[in-house]
Amino acid sequence: MPLTINGTDHDFTGDPRTTLLDFLRDGCGLTGTKKGCDHGQCGACTVLVNGQRINSCLTLAVMHEGDAVTTIEGFGTPEELHPLQEAFVRHDGFQCGYCTPGQICSAKAMLDEAANGWASFVSDDITAPVSLTRDEIRERMSGNLCRCGAYSNIVDAIAEVVEAGR
């Protein structure tokens, strides 16, 4: 069953119980995506599927025939970091780093959602263009927990990328 991961063709043939997360890590050796709670509560496993962020622990690999998956390995290289990766380093947006791949995948999708005008729970006017204030960033990133509590620096890092994009 074919799908692409970070632009490369892959074939899934395993047990249908295999989550997309386990396929990425164990089947493809892409261990950047992390398993935290395995129940969709922590966001460490966040990846992009056809550009949208999802919890890869709560979906089966077999359900993704033909889909385009992007993991943290698809985001830039050690020589040329993605702007979000650079900003996380500059603002120290982590301590242990376990949640960081999920945070960065999530933040990338968040920027696209905001650009497409998607409102959030804290938006005063859900029909107006989105302005990514710190409150908006916090609400939109609430699906990504950071056990080390680096939240304020994570918000700083994302806010800087938002600002640079203006």
Binding site: G43, Q52, N55, L58, T59, S106, E113, S142, G143
Partner: peptide, 8 residues
């Protein structure tokens, strides 16, 4: 829920 969950 969250954006991740609502996307799915």
């Amino acid at each position: 829920a969250t954006f991740q969950l609502r996307n799915k």
